[in-house]
Design a binder for these strands. Sequence first.
DNA 1: AAACTGACCTGCAAGC
DNA 2: TGCTTGCAGGTCAGTT
Length: 309
Amino acid sequence: MPELPEVEVVRAGLEPAVTGSLITGVEIFDVRSLKRHSVLAGPFADLLAGHRMLAAVRRGKFLWFPLSSGRALVTHLGMSGQVLLRAPGAVEDGLLRIRLSIEHPTLGEFWVNFVDQRIFGSMAVDELVPTPDARPAGFAGATSLDPAWAALIPSQVAHIARDPLDPAFHETTFFAALNRKNTGIKRALLDQTLVSGIGNIYADEALWAAKLHFEQPTSSLGPRVARRLLAEVRLVLTKALAEGGTSFDAQYVNVNGASGYFSHSLNAYGQQGKPCPRCGHLIVRAAFMNRSSHFCPHCQKLRRPRATQ
DNA sequence: AAACTGACCTGCAAGC
DNA sequence: TGCTTGCAGGTCAGTT
């Protein structure tokens, strides 16, 4: 569920509370939320208790907290994950899977509650490895002043591409990959090894803004169109972030449980049956990759379509 | 090698 | 009211 803007809202909310905090307790209520944790690393709780979190870092939809032990706590929200900051003793959150008790040097004690309805998300303690380009591995907000962990990335996140808001995102490599690939543009936007952070909502929104059909072959995009699309991706992610992300229900909330407002700004996603804000034709929903694509059939036509036997 | 399909899960709304 | 069905913001292993 949460895409880059939603995950960034969570990261930014956690940053002040977790940076410098000592982990004093770990409670696991559902081991399925540890599916990304390798038992070879050791018991999850033992690898956390007694160590400090040094920062809150994000690349795409992955979030991690470098630890004083030299490892990192990795968090992915999956489709329905939330990380909630609570005062110790607060009323129980439903669907609570993991809880960390932490102690901040000046702000005091918190509960970090990992809540996840569908359990597609997870937490794990992972090794940190150097980034190939020696650039900062992800976005760390105000904490990143060339610290030791900046150019280190959790091993399980290393295969994920940089996101389009990352200053080290390599545009040329991305455009070259689009040229080389033999697939549709939406599939490519959702491929986190090409560009990270984009999910079903923002893929549909960016394609609507760029007037591209979701099955337009990537290899058919000229340099100008590809640039335009990337610009639209950045624009929609930035706008959504400014509005606190997209919330349809209580499933996506920030660390305090509050919703974002971007759902009011959607032009295509979930708008099937409503008029396209640009041309007035009705937005259509189509099956795509075991999910849905939403688009305007009038201003998002397939160009140079391949022969359809 | 690259492209694509299920599997993994729970809860909610809509339809009967 | 209670059942069934379809649907949901993602990733990964496995199969062609």
